[in-house]
């Protein structure tokens, strides 16, 4: 009689295998997930002409400059039509002020060669934040021989402003 009772009370043992499997699966997934950061992109268009007097320069446009701070390699400051902006997060507001809240005004993005790329991208991002999509990169200086002439033209233009 005792033998029969013990057989009835004996419940089938829980199988933990599946649960452990799922736990490990989740563990591996969440450990590896942070490494898989999706990349994003910022679209842009290059100027179809080159040299100091590109077509956009002659139009009514806002000039957004990204300049290196002398002696500080990892910092930069911004100038919007010759007005200095130190906080990069305020560029979009300054751009809109400059353009009287018009978003169709073209922006010419002119950056120093030595400035870190992140500042140039920040400036581009701020233009898009201001909904100003017509951003043209200032044409790169022509190579070697014409470079001096280009720099001189640029200097004279800055002085005249």
């Amino acid at each position: 009689m005792a033998k029969i009772k013990s057989q009835v009370n004996e419940e089938p043992a829980d199988s933990f295998t599946s649960m452990i499997d799922i736990v490990f699966l989740l563990l591996i997934f969440f450990i590896l997930q942070p490494f898989k950061s999706p990349e994003m992109k910022l679209r842009s268009e290059l100027p179809k002409d080159s040299g100091p007097s590109s077509s956009t320069d002659n139009m009514e446009s806002i000039r957004l400059e990204v300049r290196t701070v002398p002696g500080q390699e990892d910092s930069a400051y911004f100038k919007i039509s010759m007005v200095r902006v130190d906080d990069p997060d305020r560029i979009f507001r300054a751009l809109l002020n400059q353009a009287n809240n018009r978003t169709d005004v073209p922006v010419v993005l002119d950056a120093d060669e030595a400035v870190h790329f992140k500042y140039v991208l920040k400036a581009l991002d701020q233009c898009y934040k201001a909904e100003m999509r017509d951003v043209k990169f200032s044409a790169p200086p022509p190579p070697n021989a014409a470079k001096h002439e280009y720099m001189e033209t640029r200097r004279q233009r800055d002085v005249s402003r």
Binding site: E39, K41, L42, S44
Partner: peptide
């Protein structure tokens, strides 16, 4: 003329 710059996801 058409280019795009790769950026990092700001949330990540």
């Amino acid at each position: 003329w058409r280019i795009a710059f790769a950026t990092k996801d700001p949330i990540m």
